[in-house]
Simulated assay, not measured.
Amino acid sequence: MITHKQFDNDFKYIEIQNKQAEAKIALQGAHLFHYKVKDKASLLWLSDSAYFEEGKAIRGGIPICFPWFGKNKEDPSLPQHGFARTQLWTVVLEEEIDEGTTYIQLQLKPNTHTLTQWAYLFDVTLDIIIGHELSIALSVTNTDTKPFEISTALHTYFSVSDIDNISIKGLENRAYYDALEEKTSIQDGDILIQEEVDRVYVNPTETITLLDRDEKISLQQEGSNSLVVWNPWIEKSKQMADMTEDGYRTMVCLETSNAREDARVLQAKESHVLRAEFKYG
């Protein structure tokens, strides 16, 4: 079942329920902020203080970072992670493929607001398949007559039982840029989160595994040679108005991305697809 709903403030979202899973997608930002497989805990973390307001990004779920990731290199005063996550997207297609699989496609095109921040023409679609597994693909096409560079991400917040219970496998011996120390290091063994972490891993393996007690979640990605691992920890959580002070304990971000040197230049009429697939076991 696909239902269009809205909160009391008219903030619109889509609710999906099928025999395998349930999900919620905000039209602002094409933002998947809830996904839960039957008989499982929610895969995605959502802040108890998240904003569901026009023009404000939602803390949690899978924010879409486009056309830049992090700060804009040319004008740091522009919004962090670009404008896509606060723009209203258009629903292009809704399809119940079968009793346990639902397909939603949303689209973003240039408007007066986007052109003031980024003077290019583009066509962006987000394809989401909701079932026992979750698939999300961000497709960017350059519809301009000149090339442009994009630095994008599927900024996934995973819900975890407690940060002390998790480990991340699949990034052993991979180089990463540590944004906190501003240096490059090599990962030694599994990743454990015991302090603030803000890293961009280079050439990650095709499958990344998040272990949380007895639960195993696999992330497979395409169109990406970088993976961001992020947890704000104690002090930064206190500084975020849309995050509770202990929110860091029940989340970790593994972000399928085209970050830093993995930014992509698209020639006129060229496209790029960034895809992430999530499954249990």
Results as ranks from 00 to 15, higher is better:
134 L>T: 03
106 L>Y: 08
247 G>S: 15
24 K>I: 04
135 S>C: 12
88 L>C: 02
123 D>E: 14
202 V>P: 00
243 M>W: 06
155 H>W: 09
212 D>Q: 08
208 I>S: 08
172 E>T: 14
119 A>G: 05
168 I>V: 15
30 A>T: 02
72 N>I: 01
247 G>D: 15
105 Q>V: 12
36 K>H: 04
119 A>Y: 12
6 Q>T: 03
145 T>M: 08
235 E>C: 01
167 S>E: 14
200 V>A: 11
71 K>Y: 05
169 K>G: 01
205 T>N: 15
169 K>A: 10
152 T>E: 14
64 I>F: 08
198 D>I: 03
256 T>R: 11
257 S>H: 09
110 P>C: 02
218 S>C: 14
272 H>L: 06
147 P>K: 01
108 L>K: 05
3 T>W: 00
136 I>E: 11
163 I>F: 13
10 D>I: 00
204 P>T: 14
114 T>N: 10
93 L>E: 15
249 R>M: 12
278 F>T: 05
62 I>W: 13
205 T>W: 01
159 S>T: 07
48 D>H: 05
165 N>P: 01
112 T>A: 07
113 H>K: 06
3 T>F: 03
17 Q>Y: 15
5 K>Y: 06
227 L>Q: 10
237 S>E: 05
7 F>V: 02
146 K>Q: 11
189 G>S: 09
83 F>S: 06
272 H>W: 15
100 G>R: 07
